[in-house]
Structures are given as structure tokens and as C-alpha cells.
Simulated assay, not measured.
Amino acid sequence: MAVNQDYELPCGRELDTVWDRLDEVGAGRADEHELSCPHCRTARESLLALREATQELVTEPDPPPPDLVGRIMSAVRAEVRRGQMLNLGTSEPGGVEVSEQAVAVVLRYAADSAGDVRARRVRVRTVGVDDGGAARVEVELTLAVRLGNGDRGQSLARVRELVTRAAAARVGLSLEKLDLLVEDVYEDGE
């Protein structure tokens, strides 16, 4: 089944390849790249959630579970869209561009690695260009916090630190503004 025929993950692997190998990886027959690549792992988790939610719709004759719509919407939001292109600026002739969606994937992964939080939506918006020609951006990051997390302030500070660092080190962008919005809580196992 073709998922999205023209989307390549930041690691260079096609999203269709990740979809086609879901069962193989799940059965313990992952290749070296699949074992170590954070981009493939994130895409695989989203695709598995989408497949599970779809299967529930197919097999569930009764009204859907209350969290099904939220799970489907999370998968839809994670659906890859190229979006606007951002100029990264360079001192060399020519230019380097990256899509807002690719930036959002990097920032989502950084936020998810903070622990006790999950990134829900990432919105990247260009607000100008700096002297070197690089895009200046504002980011709005919507999060869910683990229920019972007593250190929410520290968790959010860690998210802010990791996202800001990832924007600079992994993408080459400086954030003008980073808004963190907590819109949900989740329990372990969700």
C-alpha cells in the first residue's frame, strides 16, 4: 500500500519504505538503519498508530472509543506536508533551503526527547530574514504532559532548551520566539 509516494524522511529513506517494512521491523527483522535512525523510528510510530486506529474503525461495530478521534488526528497532524521553504543562509554562493515541515520534525523529535512530555503540533512561521539571508522563525509547540509529572516547570524548561539547541545545531536556525502550549495530559501506556 502506497502511503505518500514522494516524501523522503530527513535520513533519506522513503516513507513508503518505512510503511512497507512495518511488519518486518515488528517481527525483529530490522536492518541496521532501522535500528538506529530516529527519523525512521518516529515515522514508524506514527504509521503504527495510524494503522491501529484504522483497524479499530474497521473492526469496531459500536461507537468508536473516546480517544480514537484524538489518536487519528495526531496521526493526521504528523502526516508529512512539505510546507513553505526556509532559506538557511550561507556564506558560499548559492543557497540552502529546508521545508518548514522538516524543521517541525526535527523540533518535535527534540521536544519528545525531554521526557514526560509529548509534542503534539509544531507550527513554524517565517517572520523575516537576518543579515546572512537566513530565515528568522517563530515556533509554536503544543505539548501533552505526563499525568503525575510534578516537575512540569523543569520539563518545559528542558523542552525549551532542547528545541532551541536543535533549531541551531541541527537545522541552522535561530528562533525569534518559541511558544510552548500545554493542551493535554497523558497517562503512561497511552
Rank of each mutant, 00 (worst) to 15 (best):
L156G: 10
D62N: 14
E97Q: 08
N87A: 12
L50M: 11
N87S: 11
V139I: 14
E92G: 00
N149P: 10
E52H: 01
M85K: 14
C40G: 13
E79Y: 08
A168H: 05
R29G: 04
E187S: 08
R81K: 13
V137Q: 07
D6H: 01
G26A: 09
L156E: 15
P93E: 14
V122T: 15
Q101C: 10
R51P: 03
A49Y: 00
T54M: 11
L181T: 02
D131G: 10
A110K: 08
G189N: 13
V163L: 03
C40R: 08
V103N: 02
E140D: 06
E140C: 01
T126G: 08
A104N: 06
V80N: 10
E79R: 11
E52N: 07
D151V: 00
A78I: 05
A169F: 13
T90R: 03
L68N: 11
M73I: 00
E97H: 04
V122H: 10
G115N: 08
A169G: 04
L88A: 07
E32G: 14
S36V: 11
L181F: 11
G128D: 00
L178F: 03
E97A: 12
L147E: 15
T90E: 08
G70A: 12
W19D: 09
T142G: 04
A27Y: 00
V58K: 08
R71P: 05
D130V: 00
A134N: 12
G128I: 03
A102M: 09
V103S: 02
D16I: 00
G132S: 09
R29L: 07
E138A: 06
R13L: 07
E45G: 01
V76M: 15
A30C: 03
P38D: 12
M85L: 13
R121P: 00
C37Y: 03
G94S: 10
P10S: 15
R51S: 05
L178T: 09
V163T: 15
R82H: 00
L156R: 02
R136K: 10
P63T: 15
N149G: 10
G12F: 12
A2C: 04
E100W: 11
V127F: 07
L143G: 13
S91N: 13
V76W: 06
G89F: 05
Q84G: 15
L35C: 09
S36P: 04
Q101P: 08
G148H: 08
A30W: 00
S174T: 12
S155K: 09
D179N: 12
A78F: 02
M85G: 09
V182N: 05
R118D: 09
A53T: 05
W19S: 04
L57T: 03
G70C: 09
A49D: 13
Q5P: 14
R146W: 10
V117G: 15
W19G: 02
S36Y: 06
R158I: 07
T17I: 12
H33K: 01
V96Y: 05
E161K: 01
E176A: 09
S174Y: 02
D130M: 07
P66N: 09
R108L: 13
L9W: 01
V117L: 11
G12S: 04
H33I: 04
R125A: 12
R77A: 09
R123P: 06
V18E: 07
E92H: 08
D31L: 13
R123A: 07
G148E: 01
R41M: 04
L86W: 08
V58N: 01
G70S: 12
E92Q: 14
V3D: 03
T164W: 05
